[in-house]
Design a protein around this nucleic acid. Structure first.
Lengths: 404, 404
DNA sequence: CCAATAAGTTCGGTGACAGAACGAATTAAT
DNA sequence: ATTAATTCGTTCTGTCACCGAACTTATTGG
């Protein structure tokens, strides 16, 4: 019903850009074949893109019959995205160029004072990184912030974010935009992790994907039918509150969810203590288990047993093709192997479970993915509400190498 | 990347159609204002639509300053949709016109021989109804079949459909298309129920909606972000297998899910029997409870307790704004009131729970909705993958009256 | 050196729109 | 009754995004 003027051009421009981004150096004739648009139109559009500085000539083809073709390529540094993963203990910042290469990753412990301090800290970290790589600020078009909790884009606030002091009372979005001087998107960190794994990790090409981050807390990100699921109040994936594990009707379960109390860090240490009387941290439990400690092995078995049930619940509700485990506990192979063995015992259809490939950087990469997708959409096409991200997978390798 | 020729026209045509469908009799000038397209363009498009027989002049405005306007309206009987709800015990068939009015609803017990017999039965029922209303077969453009189980559109088979004999071994889609002679869409019945309630029932205007059908079995349909969630193998919503209620690791839970064994018909009768030694049907349990039977009351309390947990699990995973209960058990107010009281005790965020407004006809109405949306998309616009259904809500009232 | 072939441009369309101007029809005010 | 104000709808002109065919240019293979 709204006014949609001149969409046709935008669409074509977008598919041309898509072809150039994904097809690497590519001739106009090839773009024409790929997109189905006429050679003449492609020439026009490419001329426009070149004038605006988005693409450039990079060479000519050779070695085949017929005239050589001029190939075009993205101008990599035409724009940059800032990706931020804001965790309770660590902040990570990365800068990506249009070709999806990550420059200048940086991380520091989160400023414990929270609120504006964290925002300033991130801004400083980002600008420092940009300066180090000689990236002019003007070329940074967008910042994507991944944070725990449920960011509400209408109010700019982040709900349910217990890990960072003062965030529940301020307009985080505005504060970031002011501090960074660019457009800012805020998204739940686990949601970004699904996107990350979907782009470059375990979930490539999978449209129905779940990511479970298990560490101090539990959270899940869900991609269904190629779309990120956010839910009514952006609280989808708060699976800590699933009525599995601890008694859901216990008063405590309303504060710390039943499932979280069955599988997260605190549950594991507590379980170990009840078995042995000794209070140790989670990594030590894994070490002890490797050394044959029976109590530690029991703790792992029980944790995996609840986790398997949690996965079964997600599978029953949403039917993902694959479930990716992440977080400090979820990434452990001891947990993965146990869960893999247990799922078929409590759930009838096949669900693939794997550990995340991107580790702790999944959210950061997801932030880059969503930012690049958004950028491409706003610059070169209709910002369709369902605009699927279509980013190169070829350069993915490059990205991974640069980053690691 | 695919070829998208001449999309612009389609888009405009679609929004004009939308304006006419929703705006009732409407003048071209008003359409112009509504859509933002120029008066001239509207005149062209409307002329085209009139020639093709989709819209017609219906009168003139009067009583206001200025020239009178010619108003246009849908040609209601330009096309029809066949909606079918294929249940284990009952088949329902309805015919809807383009204005979303339902004609000729019919229902009979499902042919117990299953397979082709059921398909022929439905075809007969439908054509009979069409003949009764003097609807020419040619005008039926599409049939939407709602069925239990997980229909796979690529193979045309329906998986996990235990209620209808022989359906797991045949290409149901093809068989229907052959028998009915029109394009056929098959969709899970509970998925259609969400769409139905979203269109005309409890879920109007709600983009994040869950529907739980609780009766002989349990199933759920999920609409998230305005999209129906189908999952990787179209098995999303098979919540009977949630590891809640019965022991999920019991061997039996792989055949009949743990949650189903805690809340569905069999669970209730079994619970009542273990308390009293008497085997009675579910309706009798409700009656006894109303009469003050303590055992029956306990059965209701316990069932509701598990159901509340199931809802909490869905809410934790998908964060719907509202959960609608349906099915013979879910529709009972005794269950609803108990669940409403229990949810806040086991889940921290607000989740509205209501009984379905459309009762057993939710799936049928959902089938009409999806069919009409599909029809409008294919006839008048891009069949966008995410094409939101935009059906009139004004005529909804009419529809309800006709149907009830 | 001459096909054969592929790349790219030029030229002449076409269809979907917009916008301004204008005629036509109606009511309200004088 | 005449005029002014107002709204509807058409006509005319123009623009923009595209297509298709013809043509030019560059290259390889024989």
């Amino acid at each position: 019903m709204s006014d949609l003027p001149r969409i046709s051009r935008q669409f074509s421009q977008r598919s041309v850009m898509e072809a150039i981004v994904q097809g690497g150096p590519i001739s106009r004739a090839s773009i024409s074949k790929l997109t189905g648009l006429s050679k003449q139109t492609i020439s026009e559009i490419v001329r426009g893109l070149e004038q605006e500085g988005w693409v450039q000539e990079t060479g000519r083809t050779s070695g085949h019959v017929g005239r050589t073709a001029v190939t075009y390529e993205l101008v990599h540094d035409a724009a940059y995205i800032m990706a931020v993963d804001l965790g309770g203990t660590k902040v990570r910042v990365a800068l990506t160029d249009l070709a999806c290469q990550i420059f200048a990753e940086a991380a520091t412990p989160t400023d414990p004072r929270g609120g504006q301090f964290v925002i300033d800290q991130i801004a400083a970290l980002a600008f420092q990184a940009a300066a180090r790589e000689r990236i002019p600020r003007k070329k940074i078009r967008l910042a994507v912030i991944g944070a725990p909790g449920a960011p509400d884009p209408t109010t700019g606030r982040i709900l349910l974010a217990p890990n960072i002091a003062g965030f529940d009372a301020m307009n985080v979005l505005d504060a970031f935009e002011k501090a960074l001087g660019v457009a800012v998107m805020i998204e739940n960190d686990v949601n970004l992790a699904v996107l990350g794994e979907n782009w470059l990790g375990q979930g490539q090409g999978i449209d129905n994907l779940a990511y479970i981050a298990l560490g101090t807390g539990v959270g899940s990100g869900l991609m269904l039918g190629g779309h990120l699921v956010r839910g009514a109040t952006h609280a989808a994936g708060e699976i800590g509150f699933m009525p599995i594990g601890a008694d859901p009707f216990a008063a405590e379960s309303l504060r710390t969810g039943a499932f979280e109390r069955a599988v997260a860090t605190h549950a594991m240490t507590e379980r170990y203590r009840s078995l042995t009387g000794i209070q140790v941290a989670v990594p030590a439990i894994f070490e002890n288990a490797a050394a044959g400690d029976k109590a530690a092995l029991t703790v792992l078995d029980e944790t995996a047993r609840y986790l398997a049930q949690g996965i079964a619940a997600i599978a029953a509700v949403a039917n993902p093709e694959k479930v990716i485990l992440g977080g400090s506990i979820g990434l452990r192979p001891e947990i993965l192997s146990r869960v893999k063995a247990l799922i078929p015992l409590c759930f009838p259809y096949p669900v693939t479970v794997e550990a995340g490939e991107l580790g702790a950087r999944a959210a950061l990469i997801g932030a880059a993915a969503i930012g690049l997708g958004q950028l491409h959409n706003t610059l070169f096409g209709v910002d369709a509400p369902d605009g699927r991200i279509s980013l190169p997978t070829a350069q993915a390798a490059a990205l991974k190498e640069v980053v690691l």
